[in-house]
Each structure stands twice: as structure tokens, then as C-alpha cells.
């Protein structure tokens, strides 16, 4: 991460911590959810901006996911979505597609990323327009609900994987 990126992110973290303390102690009154949404959007953009073209593609992909997650949270906050299960499947596809678009912009020589991104986004739009009431969307929604219920177990699994494979880091 570049020096300006570090400064922006660290300042944001300090402000978030201070605001939260002020909110908890009753000095300030604001919705924490709204702040988190804006932070997702802000940090998503900052991570993408500071990692693009810097050989930090993992972080670039994550930055794109954070930004799209911020947009999705903003949509659900501002608009009344009747059935959130129906939009989860296309949203995840679109989010992964956006991540691959960023990878393509980072390195335009890799045309494969553009093909995958286009494919994911097309499937996402197609699913949104034509499959909104189909069994696939509803089943995918159920799978997502199960994964959402067990997210701590998934996080632990990811953590253990990173710790167990730590020696592999040096081989990349």
C-alpha cells in the first residue's frame, strides 16, 4: 500500500474509533449503520485507487468487493427491497465481475479477466431480468442464507488455512 493510501486509511480508522466513542458516551448522535456504509464506499475506493498498478492484485480485488458491498448496503438502506434473497445471487455475481474488471484494468494484457467479468455481469443481469422467480434464484438464496448463518465457522476455516499454509507465502 502506498504512503498516501496508508495515511488516508489510518486517519479514517482513528476518526471511526473516536466517533464511535463519542456516540457511545452520548456526545454525538448518529446512526452507526450509515457511517459504516460510507466507510465501505470510502475505503473501497481508496483501496482500489492506492493498489491499482502496484502489483497488489489481491488487495485490489478485495477493494472492489468492499466498494460493491457498500453500494449494496446503501441500496438496502435507502430503498425498500421486498425480497432481498432475490437480489443476493445477481449481486454476488456482479460483485465478482467488478473485481475481475479491476484486475483487467490493472493489467490489460490479461484478456481472460475481461471475458470472465463480462460473463459474470451478463449472467447477473440475465438472472435479475429473467430468473427472478425461478427455482435457481430461490435455491441460491437458501444456500446464501445457510452460509450467512455459519459465517463465523467459514472465517475460522480461512484463518486456520492462512496459519497452516504460512510457509507457502514465501513461495509466491
Amino acid at each position: 500500500m502506498s504512503r498516501p493510501g496508508k495515511v488516508i486509511i489510518s486517519t479514517g480508522l482513528i476518526i471511526l474509533g473516536l466517533l464511535n466513542i463519542l456516540s457511545e458516551t452520548g456526545v454525538l448522535n448518529f446512526e452507526l449503520n450509515t457511517l459504516i456504509i460510507h466507510l465501505f464506499l470510502f475505503y473501497g475506493l481508496i483501496i482500489v485507487m492506492t493498489t491499482i498498478g502496484r502489483n497488489s492484485r489481491g488487495l485490489l480485488f478485495i477493494g472492489a468487493q468492499i466498494f460493491i458491498a457498500g453500494i449494496a448496503m446503501l441500496m438496502t438502506e435507502k430503498f425498500e427491497i421486498l425480497n432481498s434473497v432475490k437480489i443476493l445471487f445477481p449481486s454476488v455475481l456482479f460483485s465478482f465481475g467488478a473485481g475481475f474488471v479491476m484486475l483487467y484494468i490493472d493489467n490489460p494484457k490479461e484478456k481472460t479477466f475481461l471475458i470472465i467479468a463480462s460473463l459474470l455481469m451478463l449472467i447477473s443481469i440475465f438472472a435479475m431480468l429473467f430468473l427472478s422467480n425461478s427455482g435457481i434464484i430461490l435455491s441460491a438464496g437458501r444456500v446464501i442464507n445457510i452460509l450467512l448463518a455459519f459465517w463465523p465457522v467459514i472465517l475460522s476455516m480461512m484463518g486456520i488455512t492462512l496459519l497452516v499454509n504460512k510457509n507457502e507465502a514465501s513461495s509466491h
Binding site: 463465523p152 465457522v153 467459514i154 472465517l155 475460522s156 476455516m157 480461512m158 484463518g159 486456520i160 488455512t161 492462512l162 496459519l163 499454509n165 504460512k166 507465502a169
Partner: peptide, 14 residues
């Protein structure tokens, strides 16, 4: 860094 990320994920997950 990998240990730090893995530890954070593990502690939050656990």
C-alpha cells in the same frame, strides 16, 4: 502478514 491476517480471521470466527 499471513499470520496476522489468519489470526484476526481465526479470533473473530472463533
Amino acid at each position: 502478514r499471513q499470520v496476522l491476517s489468519g489470526s484476526i480471521l481465526l479470533i473473530v470466527g472463533l
